[in-house]
């Protein structure tokens, strides 16, 4: 039942309408109106309450619906390519849109290799930075360093790409790639001819991009280790490094795995910086100092020129990329959640 508006309901019932001011000398002898009478008048308020609850629930459910709709639409679009190519869509090594051949293994390979390079570089650096900040740094320097590292997270990926191509490539990536291949050239993974526009070059830039992600999470994880554990290690005569190794690291392992996987997830999906630095060659090369391609990069680079079937194939690439990142991300979340639940 809906009776009038709220104001009406109150002045009639609440006893706090402007007219019913009670002076202290006038103790209340009048009997307050009955509760059920008041409640009936609140019908409108109740409906509002329910409406608000429903709106909130619908908004929340929308997140699920969008995700489901995303998966369905894209899979559906890519379906013709999936069916015509079959399993060779993900196992084929030839990507020749002009001839209608769509094998995306080089892209899967490139995505995985660049991301692994990024993680291999970023994890030790992030852990070092986080340990320095939580265990070693004098407090006056903690803020500025943490702030500077966090700034890396704010830089858009296209800016990383621009900077990577015009600054880091001549300054570091090209010489480093050449040096690696001239020293370790006998290993297949550093086989010449070397170029900075390669899996290696893209991996280094990705590493810089995920350092703030991993180090921010690692910092939280290390901070969560109780001080009692540290004191216990010191009380046994440990040096600081032994304390870190015996008390801090073991406690933090699940959280660090989660942080690494979130960094990996970000690297897998990163598009623009890789598109500019990976060298854009749709082949599989064992040597990481040679050009390659990645799933996200091929979507961004070839989308504007693709024909109708080509676009379906690129959507298919996206679906595979989505599936890989989702698995990695869900695993990471489960790690992090388990950690939180244990606390």
């Amino acid at each position: 039942m809906i009776h009038g508006v709220r104001g009406d309901e109150i002045s009639a019932g609440g006893g706090i309408g402007g007219g019913s001011v009670r002076s202290p000398a006038d103790p209340r002898d009048e009997r307050p109106p009955s509760l059920s009478a008041l409640a009936r008048r609140r019908g409108f308020g109740r409906a509002l309450d329910r409406l608000f609850g429903w709106t909130a629930a619908v908004s929340g459910t929308l997140v699920l619906l969008i995700l489901a709709y995303m998966v369905l639409t894209t899979t559906n679009t890519a379906l013709p390519v999936f069916t015509s190519e079959g399993i060779s869509f993900v196992t084929g090594t030839e990507w020749l849109p002009s001839r209608g051949v769509y094998g995306i293994l080089p892209f899967i390979y490139g995505t995985l290799v660049t991301s692994i390079i990024a993680v291999v570089i970023a994890v030790p650096i992030s852990l070092g930075v986080s340990l320095y900040l939580t265990e070693l740094a004098p407090s006056w320097i903690k803020g500025p360093i943490a702030y500077a590292v966090d700034l890396l997270a704010a830089v858009p990926s296209v800016v990383y790409g621009l900077w990577g191509v015009f600054v880091l490539l001549p300054l570091f990536l090209q010489p480093a790639a050449e040096a690696l291949s001239s020293v370790f050239g006998f290993l297949p993974i550093f086989k010449a001819p070397a170029t900075g526009l390669s899996y290696f070059g893209a991996g280094v830039v990705l590493a810089i991009m995920i350092i703030p992600i991993i180090s921010a999470l690692a910092r939280e994880v290390f901070r969560a280790v109780p001080d009692d554990d540290r004191l216990a290690a010191y009380a046994l005569g440990a040096t600081r490094w032994e304390m870190i190794w015996e008390a801090v690291i073991p406690r933090s392992r699940p959280g660090l795995v989660g942080a690494t996987m979130l960094g990996l997830g970000r690297a897998l999906g990163e598009t623009i910086a890789v598109a500019l630095l990976v060298g854009s060659r749709p082949t599989i090369s064992a040597s990481i100092v040679q050009p390659g391609y990645s799933m996200a990069a091929v979507i961004a680079n070839q989308f504007p020129e693709a024909d109708a079937t080509g676009i379906r194939a690129l959507v298919g690439v996206g679906v595979v990329l989505f599936a890989i990142t989702i698995v990695i991300n869900m695993a990471a979340r489960l790690f992090v959640w388990r950690l939180v639940a244990e606390r």
Binding site: L67, Y69, G269, T271, A296, V315, L321, F322, T325
Partner: peptide
């Protein structure tokens, strides 16, 4: 949480197709 990890290029593909 999972959605924060979805590659942004995939979101682009979705909006393109839909």
């Amino acid at each position: 949480d999972v959605m924060t990890g979805v590659p942004s290029v995939f979101v682009g593909l979705f909006v393109y197709t839909a």
